[in-house]
Design a protein around this nucleic acid. Structure first.
Lengths: 145, 145
DNA sequence: CGGAATCCAAATTGATACTG
DNA sequence: CAGTATCAATTTGGATTCCG
Protein backbone atom coordinates (compact mmCIF):
# COMPACT_ATOMS: atom_id res chain seq x y z
CA UNK A 1 0.00 0.00 0.00
CA UNK A 2 2.80 2.32 0.64
CA UNK A 3 4.89 0.95 -2.15
CA UNK A 4 5.69 3.19 -5.03
CA UNK A 5 9.36 2.46 -5.21
CA UNK A 6 8.92 0.06 -8.04
CA UNK A 7 8.30 2.76 -10.56
CA UNK A 8 10.09 5.69 -9.01
CA UNK A 9 13.53 6.13 -10.46
CA UNK A 10 14.21 9.73 -9.74
CA UNK A 11 17.93 9.88 -10.12
CA UNK A 12 20.63 7.80 -11.70
CA UNK A 13 22.48 6.00 -8.96
CA UNK A 14 26.20 6.14 -8.59
CA UNK A 15 27.74 9.15 -6.97
CA UNK A 16 27.00 9.97 -3.40
CA UNK A 17 27.63 13.11 -1.44
CA UNK A 18 30.38 12.89 1.14
CA UNK A 19 29.77 13.55 4.77
CA UNK A 20 31.55 13.94 8.03
CA UNK A 21 29.89 12.91 11.25
CA UNK A 22 28.88 16.51 11.69
CA UNK A 23 27.67 17.22 8.20
CA UNK A 24 25.76 13.98 8.07
CA UNK A 25 24.03 14.78 11.35
CA UNK A 26 23.25 18.24 10.04
CA UNK A 27 21.89 16.95 6.78
CA UNK A 28 19.72 14.35 8.40
CA UNK A 29 18.37 17.02 10.69
CA UNK A 30 17.52 19.15 7.72
CA UNK A 31 15.69 16.23 6.24
CA UNK A 32 13.85 15.60 9.47
CA UNK A 33 12.81 19.22 9.56
CA UNK A 34 10.98 18.61 6.30
CA UNK A 35 9.10 15.73 7.87
CA UNK A 36 8.57 17.21 11.30
CA UNK A 37 5.36 18.86 12.22
CA UNK A 38 2.30 17.42 13.81
CA UNK A 39 0.51 16.59 10.57
CA UNK A 40 3.00 16.31 7.76
CA UNK A 41 3.30 12.56 7.70
CA UNK A 42 -0.42 12.10 7.86
CA UNK A 43 -0.74 14.40 4.88
CA UNK A 44 2.05 12.60 3.08
CA UNK A 45 0.46 9.23 3.54
CA UNK A 46 -2.78 10.64 2.23
CA UNK A 47 -0.91 11.61 -0.90
CA UNK A 48 1.32 8.60 -1.45
CA UNK A 49 0.53 6.50 -4.45
CA UNK A 50 0.04 9.44 -6.75
CA UNK A 51 -3.18 10.52 -5.15
CA UNK A 52 -4.52 13.98 -5.87
CA UNK A 53 -6.73 15.54 -3.25
CA UNK A 54 -8.23 18.90 -2.75
CA UNK A 55 -7.98 20.99 0.34
CA UNK A 56 -11.37 20.08 1.70
CA UNK A 57 -10.72 16.39 1.02
CA UNK A 58 -7.63 16.49 3.14
CA UNK A 59 -9.42 18.42 5.82
CA UNK A 60 -12.07 15.74 5.92
CA UNK A 61 -9.61 12.88 5.70
CA UNK A 62 -7.58 14.12 8.64
CA UNK A 63 -9.81 14.37 11.67
CA UNK A 64 -8.69 16.87 14.24
CA UNK A 65 -6.64 19.08 11.99
CA UNK A 66 -7.41 22.77 11.80
CA UNK A 67 -7.39 24.75 8.60
CA UNK A 68 -4.46 26.74 9.84
CA UNK A 69 -2.38 23.68 10.45
CA UNK A 70 -3.41 22.04 7.23
CA UNK A 71 -2.48 25.02 5.14
CA UNK A 72 0.68 25.63 7.13
CA UNK A 73 1.96 22.12 6.78
CA UNK A 74 0.99 21.98 3.13
CA UNK A 75 2.79 25.23 2.46
CA UNK A 76 5.93 24.00 4.13
CA UNK A 77 5.84 20.74 2.23
CA UNK A 78 5.26 22.68 -0.96
CA UNK A 79 8.13 24.95 -0.13
CA UNK A 80 10.35 21.97 0.40
CA UNK A 81 9.43 20.57 -2.98
CA UNK A 82 7.62 17.57 -1.59
CA UNK A 83 4.09 18.61 -2.42
CA UNK A 84 2.78 20.39 -5.49
CA UNK A 85 -0.28 22.57 -5.72
CA UNK A 86 -2.72 23.00 -8.55
CA UNK A 87 -5.08 25.96 -8.48
CA UNK A 88 -8.20 25.74 -10.58
CA UNK A 89 -9.57 29.20 -11.07
CA UNK A 90 -13.22 28.48 -10.63
CA UNK A 91 -16.11 30.20 -9.02
CA UNK A 92 -16.07 27.88 -6.07
CA UNK A 93 -12.30 27.84 -5.60
CA UNK A 94 -10.66 24.50 -6.11
CA UNK A 95 -7.10 23.68 -5.16
CA UNK A 96 -5.57 20.28 -5.46
CA UNK A 97 -2.49 18.82 -3.87
CA UNK A 98 -0.30 15.93 -4.84
CA UNK A 99 3.23 14.73 -4.25
CA UNK A 100 6.05 15.71 -6.54
CA UNK A 101 8.07 12.94 -8.04
CA UNK A 102 10.68 13.52 -5.42
CA UNK A 103 8.00 13.48 -2.78
CA UNK A 104 6.85 10.09 -4.00
CA UNK A 105 10.36 8.82 -3.74
CA UNK A 106 10.25 9.43 -0.01
CA UNK A 107 8.32 6.23 0.40
CA UNK A 108 11.24 3.79 0.45
CA UNK A 109 13.11 5.98 2.90
CA UNK A 110 10.20 6.01 5.29
CA UNK A 111 9.93 2.32 4.77
CA UNK A 112 13.50 1.96 5.92
CA UNK A 113 12.55 3.74 9.11
CA UNK A 114 9.61 1.43 9.64
CA UNK A 115 11.77 -1.58 9.08
CA UNK A 116 14.19 -0.22 11.61
CA UNK A 117 11.37 0.27 14.07
CA UNK A 118 10.21 -3.27 13.56
CA UNK A 119 13.58 -4.49 14.73
CA UNK A 120 13.32 -2.69 18.04
CA UNK A 121 13.39 -4.57 21.34
CA UNK A 122 9.88 -5.71 22.20
CA UNK A 123 9.10 -3.10 24.79
CA UNK A 124 10.20 -0.21 22.63
CA UNK A 125 8.71 -1.74 19.54
CA UNK A 126 5.26 -1.84 21.01
CA UNK A 127 5.42 1.89 21.58
CA UNK A 128 6.66 2.51 18.10
CA UNK A 129 4.60 0.36 15.79
CA UNK A 130 0.88 0.72 15.37
CA UNK A 131 -0.25 -2.24 13.39
CA UNK A 132 -2.95 -1.43 10.91
CA UNK A 133 -6.10 -2.67 12.51
CA UNK A 134 -9.30 -2.74 10.58
CA UNK A 135 -11.16 -0.22 12.57
CA UNK A 136 -14.64 0.34 11.28
CA UNK A 137 -15.51 3.70 9.80
CA UNK A 138 -12.17 3.55 8.09
CA UNK A 139 -11.83 3.42 4.39
CA UNK A 140 -9.50 1.03 2.64
CA UNK A 141 -8.26 3.40 -0.01
CA UNK A 142 -4.72 4.33 -0.85
CA UNK A 143 -3.39 1.69 -3.13
CA UNK A 144 -1.55 2.00 -6.36
CA UNK A 145 0.19 -1.31 -6.78
CA UNK B 1 32.28 6.43 7.70
CA UNK B 2 28.63 6.03 8.33
CA UNK B 3 28.52 2.53 6.99
CA UNK B 4 27.93 -0.25 9.42
CA UNK B 5 25.23 -2.02 7.52
CA UNK B 6 27.67 -4.56 6.25
CA UNK B 7 27.77 -6.43 9.50
CA UNK B 8 24.52 -5.48 11.10
CA UNK B 9 21.92 -8.17 10.67
CA UNK B 10 19.63 -7.45 13.53
CA UNK B 11 16.58 -9.39 12.49
CA UNK B 12 15.76 -12.21 10.16
CA UNK B 13 14.03 -10.73 7.16
CA UNK B 14 10.76 -11.94 5.90
CA UNK B 15 7.69 -10.88 7.80
CA UNK B 16 6.72 -7.25 7.89
CA UNK B 17 4.17 -5.48 9.99
CA UNK B 18 1.06 -4.37 8.17
CA UNK B 19 0.02 -0.76 8.04
CA UNK B 20 -2.78 1.43 6.90
CA UNK B 21 -2.10 4.94 5.71
CA UNK B 22 -2.92 6.13 9.18
CA UNK B 23 -1.02 3.56 11.17
CA UNK B 24 2.01 3.98 8.96
CA UNK B 25 1.95 7.74 9.45
CA UNK B 26 1.59 7.20 13.17
CA UNK B 27 4.43 4.72 13.32
CA UNK B 28 6.78 6.88 11.33
CA UNK B 29 5.97 9.77 13.62
CA UNK B 30 6.81 7.65 16.61
CA UNK B 31 10.10 6.83 15.00
CA UNK B 32 10.78 10.47 14.27
CA UNK B 33 10.06 11.31 17.85
CA UNK B 34 12.98 9.10 18.79
CA UNK B 35 15.24 11.05 16.45
CA UNK B 36 13.85 14.49 17.12
CA UNK B 37 15.52 16.83 19.49
CA UNK B 38 18.10 19.45 18.83
CA UNK B 39 21.10 17.21 19.52
CA UNK B 40 20.13 13.61 19.14
CA UNK B 41 21.49 13.07 15.67
CA UNK B 42 24.73 14.76 16.51
CA UNK B 43 25.08 12.43 19.43
CA UNK B 44 24.12 9.45 17.31
CA UNK B 45 26.72 10.22 14.69
CA UNK B 46 29.30 10.54 17.41
CA UNK B 47 28.43 7.03 18.45
CA UNK B 48 28.01 5.30 15.11
CA UNK B 49 30.59 2.73 14.21
CA UNK B 50 30.58 1.14 17.63
CA UNK B 51 32.26 4.06 19.29
CA UNK B 52 32.22 4.29 23.05
CA UNK B 53 32.49 7.74 24.57
CA UNK B 54 32.18 9.14 27.98
CA UNK B 55 29.99 12.01 29.00
CA UNK B 56 32.74 14.58 28.96
CA UNK B 57 33.98 13.35 25.60
CA UNK B 58 30.60 13.97 24.10
CA UNK B 59 30.35 17.31 25.78
CA UNK B 60 33.64 18.30 24.23
CA UNK B 61 32.86 16.79 20.86
CA UNK B 62 29.60 18.68 20.57
CA UNK B 63 30.28 22.41 20.77
CA UNK B 64 27.40 24.46 22.00
CA UNK B 65 25.57 21.75 23.89
CA UNK B 66 24.78 22.27 27.54
CA UNK B 67 25.09 19.55 30.14
CA UNK B 68 21.39 19.64 30.63
CA UNK B 69 20.64 19.02 27.00
CA UNK B 70 23.32 16.38 26.65
CA UNK B 71 22.05 14.36 29.54
CA UNK B 72 18.45 14.88 28.55
CA UNK B 73 18.93 13.71 24.99
CA UNK B 74 21.09 10.81 26.13
CA UNK B 75 18.46 9.73 28.61
CA UNK B 76 15.76 9.80 26.00
CA UNK B 77 17.86 7.83 23.56
CA UNK B 78 18.66 5.38 26.31
CA UNK B 79 15.02 5.11 27.18
CA UNK B 80 14.20 4.37 23.57
CA UNK B 81 16.74 1.59 23.50
CA UNK B 82 19.04 3.33 21.05
CA UNK B 83 21.86 4.17 23.42
CA UNK B 84 23.30 2.14 26.26
CA UNK B 85 25.02 3.42 29.34
CA UNK B 86 27.89 1.96 31.30
CA UNK B 87 28.61 3.29 34.75
CA UNK B 88 32.07 2.70 36.16
CA UNK B 89 31.95 3.18 39.89
CA UNK B 90 35.15 5.07 40.36
CA UNK B 91 36.29 7.93 42.46
CA UNK B 92 36.14 10.38 39.62
CA UNK B 93 32.84 9.18 38.17
CA UNK B 94 33.08 7.67 34.72
CA UNK B 95 30.10 6.94 32.53
CA UNK B 96 30.33 5.68 29.01
CA UNK B 97 27.79 5.68 26.25
CA UNK B 98 27.49 3.60 23.13
CA UNK B 99 24.83 2.52 20.69
CA UNK B 100 22.86 -0.65 21.19
CA UNK B 101 22.86 -3.12 18.35
CA UNK B 102 19.51 -1.79 17.31
CA UNK B 103 20.86 1.72 17.53
CA UNK B 104 23.66 0.79 15.18
CA UNK B 105 21.16 -0.58 12.74
CA UNK B 106 19.67 2.88 12.40
CA UNK B 107 22.51 3.75 10.07
CA UNK B 108 21.08 2.33 6.85
CA UNK B 109 17.73 3.98 7.53
CA UNK B 110 19.33 7.37 7.97
CA UNK B 111 21.32 6.66 4.87
CA UNK B 112 18.08 6.14 3.00
CA UNK B 113 17.00 9.59 4.11
CA UNK B 114 20.25 11.10 2.93
CA UNK B 115 19.94 9.40 -0.39
CA UNK B 116 16.45 10.77 -0.67
CA UNK B 117 17.73 14.24 0.12
CA UNK B 118 20.39 13.94 -2.52
CA UNK B 119 17.69 13.43 -5.09
CA UNK B 120 15.98 16.70 -4.25
CA UNK B 121 15.60 19.48 -6.80
CA UNK B 122 18.72 21.62 -6.83
CA UNK B 123 17.36 24.56 -4.86
CA UNK B 124 15.96 22.40 -2.09
CA UNK B 125 18.92 20.09 -2.14
CA UNK B 126 21.35 22.88 -1.39
CA UNK B 127 19.42 23.69 1.74
CA UNK B 128 19.33 20.07 2.75
CA UNK B 129 22.75 18.66 2.15
CA UNK B 130 25.86 19.88 3.89
CA UNK B 131 28.75 18.28 2.15
CA UNK B 132 31.50 17.25 4.47
CA UNK B 133 34.07 19.99 4.21
CA UNK B 134 37.26 19.88 6.16
CA UNK B 135 36.07 22.14 8.89
CA UNK B 136 39.11 24.34 9.07
CA UNK B 137 37.17 27.50 8.57
CA UNK B 138 34.79 26.18 11.14
CA UNK B 139 34.96 26.94 14.82
CA UNK B 140 37.94 24.80 15.75
CA UNK B 141 37.71 24.68 19.51
CA UNK B 142 37.24 27.97 21.25
CA UNK B 143 37.14 26.16 24.52
CA UNK B 144 39.36 26.79 27.46
CA UNK B 145 39.60 24.60 30.51
C1' DC C 1 -13.96 26.91 -0.80
C1' DG C 2 -9.45 28.06 0.31
C1' DG C 3 -6.76 30.73 2.99
C1' DA C 4 -4.85 34.72 5.88
C1' DA C 5 -4.43 36.88 10.48
C1' DT C 6 -4.67 37.07 15.57
C1' DC C 7 -4.35 35.58 19.97
C1' DC C 8 -3.16 32.04 23.28
C1' DA C 9 -1.50 27.62 25.44
C1' DA C 10 1.89 24.11 25.55
C1' DA C 11 6.16 22.02 24.57
C1' DT C 12 11.34 22.67 23.71
C1' DT C 13 15.48 24.64 24.48
C1' DG C 14 18.98 27.37 26.65
C1' DA C 15 21.59 29.80 30.57
C1' DT C 16 22.96 29.42 34.95
C1' DA C 17 23.84 27.68 39.35
C1' DC C 18 24.32 23.85 42.46
C1' DT C 19 25.55 18.84 44.18
C1' DG C 20 27.39 13.90 45.26
C1' DC D 1 33.01 14.10 36.44
C1' DA D 2 28.41 13.51 35.85
C1' DG D 3 24.61 14.92 36.77
C1' DT D 4 20.04 18.10 38.94
C1' DA D 5 17.23 22.06 39.41
C1' DT D 6 15.19 26.39 38.11
C1' DC D 7 13.75 29.97 35.21
C1' DA D 8 13.48 32.58 30.95
C1' DA D 9 13.18 32.60 25.92
C1' DT D 10 11.86 30.57 21.81
C1' DT D 11 9.12 27.57 19.04
C1' DT D 12 5.09 25.09 18.02
C1' DG D 13 0.38 23.89 17.78
C1' DG D 14 -4.49 25.15 18.08
C1' DA D 15 -8.98 27.93 18.24
C1' DT D 16 -11.23 31.55 16.29
C1' DT D 17 -12.42 35.10 13.12
C1' DC D 18 -12.41 37.44 8.77
C1' DC D 19 -11.75 37.80 3.57
C1' DG D 20 -11.79 37.15 -1.81
Amino acid sequence: MTRTDEKVRYLPEGKRASYTARSAAQSVQNVLRVLEGRWKLVILFQLFGGQVRRFSDLERAIPGISQKMLIQQLRQLENDGVVARIVHHQVPPKVEYHLTEWGQSLCPALDALLIWAEGAPADVRSQLIQEGQEDAAQKPEADAT
